[in-house]
Amino acid sequence: MRKTGSFLLAVSMVLTAGGTTALAAGGNADLAQGNQSIDVEARYESSAVTPEVYSVDVSWGAMQFTYSESGTLDWDPESHTYSDNTDAGWTAEGNTVAVTNHSNTQVTASFVYDSLEDFAEISGSFDKMSFALPSAENRELDDGELKDQATLLLEGALDEKNTEFAKIGAITVTIE
C-alpha cells in the first residue's frame, strides 16, 4: 500500500516537472525526454486598402500664334479689280500641352479649345482629342509611357488690326 502511494506520488511529480503547459489543448509533450512543442498556426488576411491617389503634371508652351499673309494682290487694269495671289496661314510657337501621370491608376486626358467671344471666327482643334496614360504603379518616374502631348492647331482668319499678341481663347484639359 505504501509502495503504491510512493509510485503515484512519483508519477505526479514527473508530470508536474515535465510541464503542465505541454498538456494544454493543442499541444503534445515528449515526456520521456523532457521536451515539448507547441503548434503555431498562421494565415494571411488583408484588410489594407489602396486608395486611388491622383497626381498629374500638365505643362504647356507659349501658345503664341501668328496669322500671316504673303504673296501679292495683282491689279488687273482690264477688269479694274485685284486678282488675289496671296497665301495665308497660321504659324505657332509652343502649341503643345503635355500631360504626365504619376497616379496609381490610369487617367485619360482630353483637350478642348474655346475661342473668346471677340474671336469666334477662329476655331481650334487638337491633333489628339484625348489620350489615356497608364497607372504609374511599378514604373520609373521618367517612363515615357506615362507622358503624352497634344498639339493645338488654329483655323480661320485673324483681323489685320490685331498686330500685337492678344488672348484669343483658352484651353481646358479634362483629367478623368
Binding site: P51, E52, D57, V58, S59, W60, G61, A62, G94, H102
Partner: peptide, 14 residues
C-alpha cells in the same frame, strides 16, 4: 517649363 509657357502638378482625391 517650356519657354513662355507653364508647368503644374496637381494631386487630389476624387
Amino acid at each position: 517649363s517650356p519657354e513662355g509657357g507653364g508647368s503644374v502638378s496637381i494631386t487630389y482625391s476624387r
